[in-house]
Computed example of a mutant assay.
Amino acid sequence: MKLSLHALSGRHPAASPGACPALKRLSLEVEAGEQLAVIGPSGAGKTTLLQLLACALKPDAGTLLLDGQNPWQLPTRRLQQLRGTLFLAPQVPPLPPRQRVVTSVLAGRLPQQGLWSSLRSLVYPTGIAQADAALARFDLSDKLFARVDRLSGGERQRVGLARALLSRSRLLLVDEPLSALDPARAAQAVATLTAAGRESGATVVATLHDVPMAVQHFPRIVGLREGQLVFDLPAWRITPDLLQDLYAQEAQPGPAPALPLDEPQPRAVPMNCR
């Protein structure tokens, strides 16, 4: 799915009507099948961006086009159909605590199913083999029939990502998927997610606080600060100086996040501010 953002502005989902926009006049072009990571300090507007791309929030200003269509100019039925081709994985997956993992994973297919098939799947899950295969990619096959409330926080996050693999969506939007994962699990999760995106041809946009992980796994990096675009660069052009500028206003200042040690050191470039 191709994304076109022109001077897009929007408020955080929890903001009051009179609050300042969390995202301010952002312009981006993302080609179909492209993968990019969005980084920046807390409050930079990353979650608001994903909510706008998911058509969960209506922009305050500017234009959003998904494959050339303005979703907010579509009839209600067509907007619902468009939303069925998008998948938003929040930082805390909305998994019913008493539900079995298999049912939670198969819920990723609900937008493509009819009402009767959806209701039947809640009682007699169909597609168990597909759910098991998706969980296996995150080393969770042994949790197939476990209850969600018996999972750790990291396991729940991985179940949420496994659900994304079954969604058949053309746009995968992932918000901070690594917050409850140890480094090894985090690397596995991001590698699996990006590989699945390449296999299906889906566009992938992920927000990450782990900058080395973003640079290692995503070819394009977008930096946001205070709702505005700071840079939009290939991963190999991200330098410590750029990161120092991006995170300079964090509440607890410190050294810029280190780049992966096994990556060649990129040459310094001027910051592309817009």
Rank of each mutant, 00 (worst) to 15 (best):
V38N: 04
G40V: 11
P41G: 11
G43M: 03
A44G: 08
T47Q: 00
T48V: 02
T48Q: 02
Q51K: 04
Q51W: 06
L52G: 06
L53C: 10
L53P: 00
D60L: 15
L64R: 03
L66M: 08
L66W: 04
N70K: 12
N70D: 15
L74N: 02
T76F: 12
T76Q: 15
R77L: 14
L82Q: 04
L86A: 04
A89D: 02
P93C: 09
P94Y: 13
P96A: 06
R98Q: 15
V102E: 03
V102N: 00
T103H: 09
A107C: 10
G108V: 11
R109I: 06
P111T: 05
P111K: 03
G114W: 07
L119N: 13
L122S: 10
L122M: 15
P125S: 13
T126L: 08
G127L: 11
I128K: 14
I128G: 01
A129R: 14
A129L: 13
A129K: 13
D132E: 15
A134M: 11
L135G: 02
L140T: 07
D142G: 04
L144T: 13
F145Y: 15
R147F: 10
S152I: 12
S152F: 12
G154Q: 11
E155M: 03
Q157N: 07
V159E: 00
L161E: 09
L161V: 13
A162S: 15
A164I: 00
S167D: 08
S167E: 07
S169K: 05
